[in-house]
Design a binder for these strands. Structure first.
Length: 816
DNA sequence: CATTCGAAATTTTTT
DNA sequence: ATTTCGAATG
């Protein structure tokens, strides 16, 4: 390809970038025709996409619905800016949220533009770019350029120290809680001075702000920052040094932001400062896929874009290239129930395809069985298992499904979970390296001083701290002193001496040993690998392998500091991508992915939408849950299967559940209500025929019939409720998704749920139930009980043994 | 100081 | 049910 020929030469790395002069631009345009940058990269785009690529000047908001080619627009836009000579790669700022997204974008740009695009030094996550900027100007914000970036666990340990140092009872005011307060403040761009007094009062009787300040002071002393600081300190840097800000405003001629709906206030301020000068900012996002409100994302940022950037061009990408018409309409119909949205209408030219199926199961175990069977059927039809995903609302749902996959022998992989670099063994190993390379890294030293156990417990650490504070020296230096003095008892003293000797040896070895070999040596000599080798728990083996992988990955870096920098921001477990596997993940983890077939279990009130989201955030919470449902559905290219169970075990006890309101909200014409598979459906449930539909939107109460069948199936003698014996014996009220609202005044814990503008827990029909208050009924799982209240076809029953639960009337029998 | 037993908590997750 | 955390115990 000759695309790269006419590109301007990228400036040397580190060279400060100035805008192209007019003559340079003219020169670029005057290149002979056959050497002119190829524009064929534009040819595959539709009109809107093309507009989004070619509207290079001024603020642009691209509202890109699911599957509308968002990433393609972003990468093509970058290619376009480079190919037309409007900017050098180093003059473009492109921010993403995850390292994965950044990596993908880099690859795709390189593919479009060729070697010339490889530069892209400013393509990365907010945090990675923030780090890069801060390292250059560290001294202006009171840091040294080799500052450490704290992970969550380091942060917690530090907070614990701060709380204790302030003489606050750490048990009453846990570090975790303070961490989430501080996180929230940092997300909103608030320094200790900016925190509204009312909010600080919520922690430790109003001492929240002081603790926040003390924590920040400690960080400075340690020459460390946490993730939030990577953005906040940039803000401070720019505000206090307008010349520095201007330097970056000049440098970044064009700015692009991916997943704009996920930006928090701090990120928004960060962007706005940069964009103020040139205003060539292009934000791509989808308000309907905003699912991170709970961690500080502000949908408002996207809803108010044209207000914040006057004259903004808003481009809607509404043509979906991913899903069939039925799936798309189902998802659109659902999301249309949200009020706070900019509004898009997704359309497709794809065939209608299969309807979205909705299947009721008796309980979550049967739900897992049905999913397993369906996947086996797909597999025997030669469908690729890598194109199949099961998306759950909460991780706790995974276990049952995994269990089923294991017994069926279905290969699967779990996506998400703790990141590689968050794992304890990796953090420990890194702490050893940090403590070796940076003797003043107190946090690292403290982390491993007694890991593996070497008799240096709380008492010894307290002594170290006391001396370190008294002499104002790092812990390591305090240790050297204590080894020589007799303030420490002989046993720990001997242990500490040998540890210090080891560190000395490693530090000497650092001069001449390749860093990955040194790491290997440290892990062995310290007894760390032995510690895991001796542990006989199931995951010990995996941890050892992670450590090996860590050492192996170090080889790719020139030296230890380079590696430490990399690891503090990035580090992914390597994928064993050889075998075809079903993917299992949370809905959150699924954003941005797509699969031929998607299974969506657990669509039940309380679980999805999550009761907690409703209780804590009211209508906004409900809408975020609905967006989550929308994200789930739009992951599917050809087949989407929704499931709900009528009974689910929550925290160990069984709970009756009712179908999610989201099921009712799906347009009827795009949904196929499934019967339970033959093996589990028993006789025809004639007595349920003609019964009032649960949801008024259904002409035929099809899913209810399916449910009834499932109930019949479960009625076989082997499944007798008395045999199961799984329900709560305490009768202390029901412990499920519905408990919060129905608890008596004596109930502890959660606040009452908010009723959301007439949207009750689930729609009810208002049609009379065949039962009356006071009637005795028999439930398969909960046994006998008395009807306490009736709401349409939903009964509130006081079960003799299982306490009060809400059940569908079709699940109980009259028990005269 | 380490181990062990019992009570309490238990969404979603990136950097 | 399971895991995690803290206090009592050896």
């Amino acid at each position: 390809m000759s695309r790269a020929h006419a590109l301007p030469t990228p400036p040397e790395a580190g060279e400060s970038v100035r805008p192209l002069t007019i003559s340079e631009r003219a020169r670029a345009a005057a290149v002979p025709a056959d050497h002119r940058p190829a524009t064929d990269y534009l040819s595959g785009l539709n009109a809107e996409q093309r507009q989004a690529v070619e509207t290079t000047e001024g603020p642009v908001l691209v509202l890109a619905g699911a599957g509308t080619g968002k990433t393609r627009v972003l990468t093509t836009r970058i290619a376009h800016l480079i190919a037309t000579g409007l900017a050098w790669p180093s003059g473009i700022l492109a921010v993403t949220f995850t390292n994965k997204a950044a990596r993908e974008m880099k690859e795709r740009v390189a593919h479009l533009v060729g070697p010339a695009g490889e530069g892209m030094p400013w393509l990365g996550t907010f945090h990675a770019i923030g780090t890069k900027i801060l390292r250059r100007h560290a001294e202006l914000v009171g840091l040294r350029s080799d500052f450490t970036i704290l992970g969550v666990d380091d942060q917690l340990r530090l907070l614990k120290q701060v709380i204790t140092a302030e003489n606050i009872d750490e048990k009453r005011w846990p570090a975790r809680q303070l961490a989430s307060f501080i996180d929230g403040w940092k997300n909103r761009g608030l320094t200790p001075k900016d925190v509204p007094p009312g909010e600080a009062a919520a922690f430790a009787n109003g001492r929240g702000t002081g603790l926040y300040q003390a924590y920040q002071d400690r960080l400075k002393t340690l020459n460390a920052v946490d993730f939030g600081d990577l953005l906040l300190e940039c803000l401070r840097l720019w505000r206090e040094n307008p010349d520095v800000l201007e330097q970056y405003q000049q440098r970044f001629r064009y700015m692009l932001v991916d997943e704009y709906q996920d930006t928090n206030v701090a990120q928004y301020l960060w962007l706005r400062l940069l964009a103020q000068a040139r205003k060539n900012v292009c934000c791509v996002g989808d308000d309907d896929q905003s699912i991170y409100g709970w961690r500080g994302a502000e949908v408002d940022n996207i809803l108010r874009f044209d207000h914040d950037f006057p004259g903004a061009v808003v481009i809607r990408l509404e043509r979906n290239y991913r899903s069939t018409a039925h799936i798309l309409s189902a998802a659109s119909g659902l999301i249309a129930k949200n009020k706070d949205r900019l509004g898009k209408t997704l359309r497709t030219d794809d065939e209608p395809g299969e309807r979205v199926s909705v299947t009721g199961a008796w309980d979550s175990e049967e739900e897992a069985r049905q999913i397993g069977e369906e996947i086996e059927a797909l597999h025997s039809r030669k469908e690729n298992l890598s194109e199949v995903a099961v998306l759950v609302r909460i991780s706790a749902q995974m276990r049952e499904i995994e269990d089923r996959f294991v017994t069926l022998g279905l290969p699967y992989r779990v996506i998400g979970g703790p990141r590689f670099y968050e794992r304890a063994e990796i953090r420990d190993a890194l702490a050893y390296l940090r403590a070796t390379a940076q003797p003043a890294d107190d946090l690292a030293f403290e982390r491993i001083v007694n890991t593996p156990k070497r008799g240096l417990g709380d008492a010894a650490v307290a002594l170290l701290h006391a001396h370190a504070r008294r002499a104002r020296v790092p812990l390591m230096q305090a240790a050297r002193y204590l080894v020589e003095s007799d303030e420490m008892k002989p046993a720990p003293r001997r242990s500490l001496r040998s540890l210090m000797a080891q560190f000395d040896r490693w530090r000497t070895a650092m001069e001449k040993t390749p860093h990955h070999e040194l790491a290997q040596t440290i892990l062995e000599e310290s007894g760390y690998t032995d510690m895991w080798a001796k542990e006989k728990s199931a995951d010990a083996q995996g941890r050892l392998e992670n450590l090996k992988e860590l050492v192996r990955s170090m080889e790719e870096f020139p030296d230890l500091p380079a590696f430490l920098e990399h690891i503090s921001l990035v580090m992914d477990a390597n994928e064993d991508g050889d075998q075809e596997r079903v993917s299992l993940m949370t809905l959150h983890a699924a954003k941005g992915l797509e699969f031929e077939t998607v299974f969506l279990p657990g669509w039940e009130e309380g679980l999805f939408p999550s009761q907690r989201a409703l209780d804590e955030n009211g209508r906004a919470g409900l809408e975020e849950e609905r967006r989550l449902a929308h994200v789930g559905l739009t992951r599917a290219k050809r087949r989407a299967h929704i499931y709900f169970a009528s009974n689910r075990r929550i925290h160990g006890l069984w709970n009756a559940t009712i179908p999610s309101r989201f099921i009712d909200e799906l347009p009827e014409e795009n949904v196929e209500v499934r019967e339970a598979p033959a093996a589990y459906s028993g006789r025809t449930a004639s007595r349920f025929e003609g019964m009032t539909p649960f949801a008024s939107s259904y002409q035929t109460p099809g899913w209810q019939r399916a449910q009834a069948r499932a109930a019949e199936a479960a009625r076989d003698p082997d499944n007798d409720w008395r045999g199961g014996g799984g329900f709560s014996e305490n009768g202390s009220g029901f412990a499920g998704p519905f408990q919060a609202g129905r608890r008596g005044p004596g109930g502890r814990g959660r606040p009452s749920p908010q009723l959301i503008e007439g949207e009750v827990l689930a729609k009810s029909t208002g049609s009379p139930s065949p039962y009356e208050i006071g009637a005795r009924v028999l439930h398969l799982k909960f046994g006998p009980g008395t009807v306490a209240a009736i709401d349409g076809n939903k009964l509130t029953v006081d079960f003799d043994k299982a306490g009060r639960k809400m059940v569908l009337d079709s699940f109980v029998d009259a028990n005269g």
